[in-house]
Amino acid sequence: MTNNSNPEEYVTLSFKLMDWSHMDFKRTLNTSTSIVTIKDIINHHHGSISSIVICKHSFEEKNELRHAYATLKDYGIRGSETWS
């Protein structure tokens, strides 16, 4: 059940792997999804990858999402109330 004052928000993420563009994919997730869960999704989709670095917008150190248990919402990623 959803609290009307804090509706769930969804966002479609584009996963773009460095140097592996043929393995890019998209996934719609709740903005309450943690970074560690996103890493698990990537590993499930591609098999075990030993070192995953997640960045927002572009692959640069300043854009790294480093805190494993922070959520997309914690990183300022906003979504919509409808699943797209």
Rank of each mutant, 00 (worst) to 15 (best):
residue 44 H to R: 14
residue 36 V to T: 07
residue 34 S to Y: 01
residue 29 L to H: 02
residue 20 W to L: 15
residue 32 S to W: 04
residue 17 L to S: 08
residue 53 V to K: 15
residue 70 A to Q: 08
residue 62 K to G: 04
residue 66 R to P: 00
residue 53 V to G: 14
residue 62 K to H: 11
residue 15 F to Q: 03
residue 76 G to R: 05
residue 77 I to K: 03
residue 2 T to F: 12
residue 69 Y to C: 08
residue 52 I to G: 03
residue 30 N to V: 09
residue 63 N to A: 05
residue 23 M to N: 14
residue 54 I to Q: 06
residue 39 K to Q: 10
residue 14 S to E: 13
residue 2 T to Q: 15
residue 83 W to P: 00
residue 64 E to C: 09
residue 2 T to Y: 13
residue 9 E to D: 01
residue 49 I to H: 05
residue 64 E to P: 00
residue 30 N to E: 10
residue 54 I to H: 01
residue 34 S to T: 04
residue 77 I to H: 02
residue 35 I to W: 04
residue 29 L to V: 15
residue 74 D to I: 00
residue 45 H to M: 14
residue 42 I to V: 11
residue 84 S to D: 10
residue 14 S to N: 11
residue 39 K to T: 01
residue 25 F to M: 04
residue 54 I to K: 03
residue 68 A to T: 01
residue 76 G to K: 02
residue 32 S to C: 01
residue 39 K to F: 03
residue 33 T to R: 08
residue 30 N to A: 10
residue 18 M to C: 12
residue 73 K to L: 11
residue 72 L to F: 01
residue 19 D to I: 12
residue 6 N to T: 05
residue 19 D to L: 14
residue 69 Y to W: 12
residue 22 H to L: 15
residue 55 C to T: 07
residue 61 E to Y: 11
residue 4 N to S: 12
residue 67 H to S: 08
residue 12 T to S: 02
residue 23 M to K: 15
residue 65 L to T: 00
residue 53 V to A: 13
residue 59 F to V: 08
residue 81 E to D: 06
residue 65 L to C: 07
residue 74 D to M: 00
residue 13 L to G: 00
residue 49 I to S: 02
residue 73 K to Q: 10
residue 65 L to H: 04
residue 38 I to T: 02
residue 69 Y to I: 06
residue 83 W to M: 00
residue 82 T to Y: 05
residue 71 T to C: 08
residue 9 E to V: 06
residue 58 S to I: 03
residue 35 I to R: 05
residue 65 L to S: 03
residue 64 E to Q: 14
residue 73 K to N: 10
residue 81 E to V: 12
residue 50 S to V: 11
residue 53 V to D: 13
residue 19 D to T: 14
residue 34 S to D: 06
residue 47 G to C: 00
residue 43 N to G: 02
residue 58 S to F: 10
residue 2 T to K: 13
residue 21 S to C: 13
residue 69 Y to P: 06
residue 60 E to M: 06
residue 73 K to E: 10
residue 64 E to V: 07
residue 49 I to C: 03
residue 28 T to L: 03
residue 32 S to G: 05
residue 83 W to T: 07
residue 9 E to P: 00
residue 10 Y to R: 09
residue 41 I to S: 04
residue 51 S to D: 11
residue 41 I to D: 02
residue 1 M to R: 09
residue 37 T to W: 09
residue 14 S to W: 13
residue 40 D to M: 10
residue 41 I to C: 05
residue 67 H to Q: 13
residue 1 M to S: 08
residue 5 S to R: 13
residue 45 H to Q: 13
residue 14 S to K: 09
residue 18 M to Y: 12
residue 46 H to A: 12
residue 58 S to N: 10
residue 3 N to L: 03
residue 38 I to W: 03
residue 19 D to V: 13
residue 50 S to E: 15
residue 16 K to T: 10
residue 68 A to N: 02
residue 54 I to A: 05
residue 82 T to A: 08
residue 6 N to P: 01
residue 68 A to R: 06
residue 76 G to C: 01
residue 29 L to R: 03
residue 2 T to M: 15
residue 76 G to A: 00
residue 50 S to D: 15
residue 39 K to I: 04
residue 81 E to W: 04
residue 6 N to W: 11
residue 80 S to K: 09
residue 39 K to H: 08
residue 4 N to L: 13
residue 71 T to M: 08
residue 61 E to R: 11
residue 82 T to S: 08
residue 11 V to D: 02
residue 52 I to K: 01
residue 28 T to N: 06
residue 18 M to Q: 14
residue 11 V to Y: 00
residue 6 N to G: 01
residue 59 F to N: 13
residue 25 F to W: 07
residue 4 N to F: 12
